[in-house]
């Protein structure tokens, strides 16, 4: 058991290290930009003195590493700094208050919640559907069913997210007005209302993720069914059901967990485009707006959140598949 804990511990440490390095990369990348925070805030009204004053105030005069660690330290506590858009707005209006409205964290919090809600709805539909479809396609491989499913999933993987989104809008919102085509979400909505408005973006994500997940499940199961111990089980005259449940499933656990986690990680990327199409008030949309407006603190914060979630999911997959490996669970 000790060695297992050690391996898991190593992976966790490695994951944490990756996160730190990634945060450093993001920090360095942003600091490689021409011009700086002070110029961006002051815009046309930039003068040397005013710039220096602001630099001193936010600590831009300090060396790189000091700034990196203070930024990271603050970010870990949920303080991602002040949004340029908000900051310049308040500066322009001359009402620089410490109300917290302008902080990145205040902007992010509700949107983060919305994005999580969207991802959860999508995952709840996608995971069971794709696992069942993948299993069926593997069991009945090379049949008509398998081929039809193959063509459909390949087509849906190949389509850009916005194509899927508009097709769904066309079918379910415009031609058959079943769901709203814009996801107008605000605080204090009832759960049913919220679900109703989230369903269309969630379905779009589901379609794309299901295709990936189903294909990977199919490949994993086929790989497994080709192993000699499955042939052995069949040669013992065991019923096909029992072969699947007792012999294939325990060994399929690790690859399937891997597939699910990888695809949830994929959801993170997919969310950006889908949120823009449906004007869904999540992090993805905020991120794209920030990219267009060059709102650096927001871009930085969003990147960190996306990368963090991505690393965390991949790490989970890693650890879970180690834990479900009988060779590691029962060392010699």
């Amino acid at each position: 058991m000790g060695s297992l804990l050690r391996i898991v511990g190593q992976r966790l440490a490695l994951g944490f290290l990756t996160l730190v390095v990634v945060s450093f990369v993001i920090f360095v990348a942003v600091n490689a930009m021409p011009g700086d925070f002070a110029q961006a805030i002051l815009g046309q009204g930039y003068t040397e003195e005013a710039g220096d004053a602001i630099r001193k105030e936010v600590g831009l005069d300090k060396p790189y590493f000091v700034r990196y660690f203070s930024w990271l330290g603050a970010a870990l506590q949920g303080d991602f700094g002040t949004s340029f858009a908000q900051a310049s707005f308040t500066a322009y209006a001359g009402t620089g208050t410490g109300s917290g409205l302008g902080t990145v964290a205040a902007q992010l919090a509700p949107r983060f919640e919305n994005t999580m809600f969207l991802a959860t709805v999508a995952a709840t539909i996608a995971v069971p559907v794709s696992l069942v479809l993948g299993l069926l396609a593997a069991l009945y491989r090379n049949t008509i069913f398998d081929r039809v499913v193959n063509i459909f999933t390949l087509s849906s993987i190949s389509s850009p997210e916005f194509f899927m989104a508009y097709i769904l809008i066309l079918l379910l919102a415009v031609l058959n007005p079943l769901l709203p085509s814009l996801s107008n979400i605000f605080d204090g909505m009832s759960f049913a209302d919220r679900l109703n408005r989230t369903l269309l973006p969630a379905l779009t994500l589901t379609l794309i993720v299901t295709a990936h997940m189903m294909r990977m499940t199919r490949a994993a199961i086929i790989n497994l069914l080709a192993s000699p111990y499955i042939e052995m089980a069949r040669l013992k005259g065991i019923s096909p059901m029992r072969v699947i449940v007792v012999h294939a499933l325990p060994n399929a656990l690790a690859p399937i967990i891997n597939v699910v986690a990888l695809n949830l990680a994929y959801l993170i990327t997919g969310v950006v485009v889908v949120e823009v199409v449906f004007v869904y008030p999540g992090i993805g949309q905020l991120f794209v707006d920030a990219v267009k407006n060059r709102d650096i603190p927001v871009v930085q914060a969003c990147c960190l959140i996306f990368a963090g979630a991505y690393i965390l999911l991949n790490l989970t997959a890693d650890v879970m598949s180690i834990l479900s490996n009988p060779r590691l669970r029962h060392p010699k």
Partner: peptide, 16 residues
């Protein structure tokens, strides 16, 4: 009718 395979290591299910 029973069967004994070439590679016992691969023909035993690692999970049981």
């Amino acid at each position: 009718i029973a069967y004994v395979a070439q590679s016992a290591a691969a023909s035993f299910n690692p999970a049981h």
